[in-house]
Design a protein around this nucleic acid. Structure first.
Lengths: 104, 104
DNA sequence: TAATAATATCGTAATATAACGATATATCAA
DNA sequence: TTGATATATCGTTATATTACGATATTATTA
């Protein structure tokens, strides 16, 4: 049953904020990128480790990671020729919890 | 700071489930569709009401709603020539809460 | 029945995204 | 310095998404 519609004017989120939110959602809305986020929530990993876990070539993992870093979801630290990625946006935990509850 | 990487093998979500999750995320990853979900979390609305709130023609609202209904996020009840849409996937509340916390 | 209203569908063009081979860069090791 | 390793970038093609006008469907009202 849907909630009763109170017809009260609620404070709606600013449309620009919804635009930014949809950019972020679109960015994680990919099976391999969700896998990477899921793994990174338990610690940092290199490009190669994430690529292997997803079963994709590392140059493609690199591209996925770049997209997620670009919108502030991840950050990276280089160590020699390794590049470690980690979660930069703590709210990703809540999103993954929702996905885990619904699909896990 | 990222969480310490315990290097324990965690139970990862099945890849097919991540595929379904990414379909749903992609579907709501649009500013107008997020607005519709936000409104529908407080009650049911017609196509026309949602269209007006988003500032788009109702035939486009109808298309957005169809996409969200197709992957089980919404359902609809026709009443005469009105069609009322409502939330069918309760986990949308959690997702919107995350968005509200981060962007609202 | 005719006109209107609310919603849905179709066709299309513009744009975005995805995958991937090829190539480039940067670091380490021999 | 040479070769190997890890990651990143480029160019291209295939596919998906978006917006939107035109048209269709269904239900109400005159």
């Amino acid at each position: 049953m849907p909630p009763a519609n109170t017809n009260k004017k609620q404070k709606l989120i600013d449309l620009k904020a919804l635009g930014r939110a949809s950019e972020c959602l679109k960015t994680i809305a990919h099976p391999h990128r969700l896998r990477m986020v899921e793994m990174l929530l338990s610690g940092r990993y290199t490009v190669g480790e994430l690529a292997e876990a997803c079963g994709i070539p590392s140059h493609m993992a690199s591209e996925h990671l770049r997209l997620m870093q670009r919108c502030g979801l991840l950050s990276s630290q280089r160590d020699g020729r390794r590049n470690y990625y980690e979660i930069a946006e703590p709210h990703l935990k809540g999103i993954m919890d929702c996905i885990q509850n619904r699909f896990g």
